[in-house]
Design a protein around this nucleic acid. Sequence first.
DNA 1: TATAATAGTTCACCTATTGAACTATTCACT
DNA 2: AGTGAATAGTTCAATAGGTGAACTATTATA
Lengths: 160, 160
Amino acid sequence: MNYSLVKLFGWGVIMNKENLNLLVDTYTTAMNEVNRRINVIMNEKVHQELTSDQFGTLRFLQMKQPCTSSDIAHEFSIGKSAVTAQINRLVERNLINRTRDEQDRRIIYLTLTEDGKKLINAGTKKLYDVLGDILSEFKDEEISCFIESLEKLARIIPRK
Amino acid sequence: MNYSLVKLFGWGVIMNKENLNLLVDTYTTAMNEVNRRINVIMNEKVHQELTSDQFGTLRFLQMKQPCTSSDIAHEFSIGKSAVTAQINRLVERNLINRTRDEQDRRIIYLTLTEDGKKLINAGTKKLYDVLGDILSEFKDEEISCFIESLEKLARIIPRK
DNA sequence: TATAATAGTTCACCTATTGAACTATTCACT
DNA sequence: AGTGAATAGTTCAATAGGTGAACTATTATA
């Protein structure tokens, strides 16, 4: 039980500015902690020979291929030049192919090579194992409620 | 309402391997989305002249100072040499001071300068504003339940 | 046809991270 | 007291990731 939260909500305390600030602190601390721990375990057990960013890009491609550099830039909220650099490294390692669109020759489609597919399929399997084990510790209602809130949070955060 | 979750839980479906994998997908997608959006809004409205990492370090110092490089390396799960590099940049910008321990001269204490305090206090205020606005959209029970789950998640993730 | 917009690359510059080798200091033990 | 291990931090070379401006090539539009 988290006593700062009990203090905030458990006795029907009205939400004022100060309590809201405490809530923000509790939220950021917990979220940072989760992200750090997940990052460590992903690096050790899931990514293997990939960085987090590379794993993210290959996962995106696995689900959305064929797609473009601009799609990736938009998905991860980074500039197109950052994507070019990353894709270059993945092409050099023969994990991704570039294919020019014959109709609109400005567009370059990105697809996974056979090596790329193998690597990301293996990584995804490990992801299911590792995160599946963790999420299994929650009760079904607990985890669905948590993910609902997470999705609501994502929707609420203002774009731009 | 999230239909993939309804499919998993809403009709009393038993949790099998395949459902667990879908759950992992839903979780990672939502978590990545939240992290990306938070990152964007933090860069635009909270950090200002700092990077995310620098903001994190100054926040840690704000709460835990005086502390050492090793404390920071441990907190953020990075190597000591990475900390040295970051602290160098912050010292150059006159945001942090290094002070050698007179008893044990191996230890160097890190503290915020007056400039550093001003900057991180302003940033914290903005953090409270921006995240407070977002979290205010949740009902009290909703957010406390969410944060409880987040903290439980952090505890559950295996160290090492 | 001239001009806008779009897709992607290149470049210079910066931050962050790792891991090995290093300095300096203190601890522990015989 | 003296030696060797442990601890705290730095340096260095290498790599990844990021920005933003200037660029090429191509297509759309007016």
